[in-house]
Nucleic acid binder design. Structure first.
Lengths: 326, 326
DNA sequence: ACTAGCGATGTTAGCGCAAACATAGGCGCG
DNA sequence: CGCGCCTATGTTTGCGCTAACATCGCTAGT
């Protein structure tokens, strides 16, 4: 920066100012500085700047897994909203609270200015660290009642409840429910709770053997269908609430020659092009994953500009997409 | 850190050392320091550490898009290999060289210690900046002959050539080729070049109207099939070399009642569970995307430990998966 | 004309750590 | 027994920038 300053015949301070707030220096001076920056190929050192100003523009994001295309949508939303001014650090928790804690610790050491979490469950230490850090935090995976700070998204409970009631209303009575493993996964837990609540609300019982946890994946969905049919032959509908499980189940049903939806209805969540393209097209839940990421980043940046705690909870809802599979 | 040092009755320097290299301090002292850290809830400031040592552990990664599950595999590979010691900054170029340049500039301002690029095309300024920065760089999207620094992956050219020759060997003569838009996408360009080279090698011509560029997506693949059949009714095979295009084309063929592979063969790339699950299962290319990310990060870290330029180019190859669609 | 006030720039100090060098005590060895 | 050497720790300095304050014309109001 000294070189640039010398070349532009100003002090380093003026260069620093021109970089941070171009309107704060004389137009002509600014042009000289810009020319000098170009000539020297100077790249500002944000590390030094951050240390001096005691803040960074870096935002941290922790998702359960980086491979999962669901989270990819949210990541893209966050990245787009942040723009070039806020670099993004990403880590995955590996679906484990301990993994999340490690990532939070690493992020805080980097003095991130804000954080987005896909979880609403955290270790006690995670909570303490975030609290002590005093940085804005947005939880996005599930619209929780008591967020650490802010939350944006949809209620997995409500969504699962709505889909279950839809099935009940259409006359299905032996409904299987398949979710991803519930351990350390509040979203899956909430969905199962919603599924059970819908039964209770309608005065129905859901047999425990109709509840299943299944790892992610297309084949896994097929196996889940097989398991449920074997376990409860009378099962007349299955709600597979994660990833591509429903598509896998539908393909398996087709392979077995089971009439969907007359022998067995299949419904899913996380709508995508594929669920519409298969035959029959899947009735499913659609979540605004990209928007959730986008809004999460917006809320973070708004808070950084103005520390007043205005919006704390933003419900972006869900849609129930009716197609032919139920 | 002063607080921790006071509590442990040592100097700040000893605390700093205990954090960076626990073996360099007395075991008992270390335990006192660890206890003091626990008691105070001290979180080291890596920003200050980076400024003082003039290096960070942060690795930068730029992919064309964050939503795309192909890149997600690579991202996970990079993240897993880096581990907790190397935070990861991610940006997307939006499939544009200018976007990549902006991301590189932002990363360099953050003084990243190494960078992974999914591109092998770059703006002149990008090259200059990376060169001046003097940090290790791994290009992963396409195994290029002249990497900026290091490269790992597979040859899109070879892979596309192999698949095309496979089709030719099986007697197909009017082969359509569909790729993602080629502008600013060297991977797609290389694949088309490989497709054409295979024809030339066998002394065949490929009609220009059999070449198509198509945006990503399942529906887009379906439209590509429709376009090619309308344009060249004699088309007897289509090689769709991107994303889920091939699956989309197969579903569209099924909808139209076209016999695959007898009326028309369909082959793809980037194998996934779905391509195996559809009917008929797709013949396709499989790329080691996770391994590419993993190795890229490994190469970066190896270089950081030992600046000798050993491995510059690592070919992880590809597989041609024969199934029933051709 | 005098001064308050403002825009543009400069000066000083320090952010929280780590590199480099300094120091102190213990040990073996001729 | 004195020397060198090694281990464990401390002191000094500065990384490259920015916050806070200082300075210096210049304009406008009375």
């Amino acid at each position: 920066m000294e070189d640039v300053a010398a070349l532009a015949a100003v002090s380093a301070m003026t260069v620093s100012r021109a970089l941070r707030d171009p309107t704060s220096v004389n137009t002509e001076t600014r042009h000289r500085i810009e020319a000098a920056i170009d000539a020297t190929g100077y790249v500002p050192n944000r590390i030094a700047g951050s240390l001096a100003s005691r803040r960074t523009n870096v935002v941290g994001l922790i998702v359960p897994s980086l491979r999962n295309s669901l989270f990819a949508e949210t990541i893209q939303g966050v990245s787009d909203a942040l723009g070039a001014h806020h670099p993004l650090m990403i880590a995955d928790s590996g679906y484990a609270l301990a993994g999340e804690e490690a990532a939070i610790r690493a992020f805080l050491a980097q003095r991130i200015c804000g954080i987005v979490l896909h979880n609403t469950q955290h270790t006690a230490r995670s909570r303490t660290m975030l609290d002590d850090a005093g940085i804005p935090c947005v939880e996005t995976g599930n619209l929780t009642e008591k967020p650490l700070d802010m939350t944006v998204g949809f209620s997995n409970y409500d969504a699962a409840c709505a889909m279950t009631e839809y099935l009940i209303a259409r006359g299905y009575r032996n409904i299987g429910f398949v979710s991803l493993p519930i351990r350390d996964n509040d979203r899956a837990a909430e969905r199962r709770a919603g599924f059970l609540a819908a039964h209770q609300r309608r005065g129905l019982n859901s047999a425990p053997e109709l509840l299943l946890e299944s790892p992610p994946g297309l084949r896994s969905g097929g196996r889940a269908l097989a398991t449920l049919i074997e376990r409860v032959p009378a099962v007349d509908a299955i709600f597979l609430s994660g990833d591509v499980l429903a598509t896998g189940a539908l393909l398996e049903a087709n392979r077995r020659g089971l009439d969907v939806p007359n022998r067995i209805a299949i419904v899913g969540s996380d709508d995508n092009e594929l669920q519409e393209a298969v035959s029959p097209p899947l009735t499913t839940l659609r979540f605004p994953r990209y928007q959730i990421g986008h809004q999460a980043a917006e809320m973070l940046m708004k808070r950084l500009r103005n520390p007043s705690r205005d919006i704390r909870r933003l419900d972006l809802g869900y849609e129930l997409i009716e197609r032919a599979s139920a």
